[in-house]
Design a protein around this nucleic acid. Structure first.
Lengths: 116, 116
DNA sequence: TCTAATCGGTTCGGGGCCGAAACGAAGTGA
DNA sequence: TCACTTCGTTTCGGCCCCGAACCGATTAGA
């Protein structure tokens, strides 16, 4: 069954979650970083820089920089593909999985708390 | 009735909307800007810089800069308070209302399209 | 072998955002 | 009148991000 959400509720939801992210202590991800990170965890492996760039419709440096920043935060890691050493395999981390678990819970909680 | 949304669906929803925003032609707002903008349109008027800063738990320059950027994009406007000329009243615009209407519709549409 | 294609990363100039602190303008109170 | 407070804005040094172009490493193909 599809999730029912009126436009006004949807806007309120987006606001509540954004606000919670801003007020949280962790540095908030940009919209691009969020879409990259979630794609890595929701889509089937393996992920390459080029594949992610194509999938998100952005340029390569965007992915490289996002991986740099999120790698520094321990949310993802990189590994050379042993089969084709030109490729870089983007890998999930425990920290990243926990982070996204919290994000999913946050969105779900804010949705549950919406007024009808 | 509360909106039912499992954590996995919630994450997928956040991803789908973020991705749509990134791929859209309009420059995507930062998380902070989004929370400022939506607050202006969802909370009752009038809005001042200080009030918004306190409400979002951020410093004043954050609001000033967000208003600069979003003002340039025609999403909000500023006006001196004639009663107390120290205050700046943050005002809504037609463009801003349309933008948020599209955002609300987008979130609602992505929610409706979620797999069960 | 040796050129050409493909990979991720880096460089470049330009711009935005960050918080702390200082700023000028405007109102307040004695 | 003259401090003092309260506004929003600006400055500062630092950091991140942008796309286009270029880079070295690696692989594929003739």
């Amino acid at each position: 069954m599809a999730v029912q959400l009126r436009a006004g509720q949807a806007l309120r939801l987006w606001h509540d979650v954004s606000l919670a992210l801003v007020q949280g202590r962790e540095p908030d991800l940009s919209t691009r970083q969020a879409s990259v990170l979630i794609a890595i965890y929701l889509e089937p492996q393996p992920h390459t820089v080029r594949g992610l760039a194509a999938r998100l419709g952005v340029t390569k440096p965007v992915i490289t920089r996002a991986l740099d920043t999120m790698g520094r935060q321990g949310l993802v890691s990189r590994k050379r593909d042993p089969a084709d050493r030109r490729n870089v395999l983007v890998q999930r981390t425990v920290n990243g999985a926990l982070f996204l678990e919290r994000l999913g819970d946050l969105v779900a909680a804010k949705a549950a708390a919406l007024p009808s």
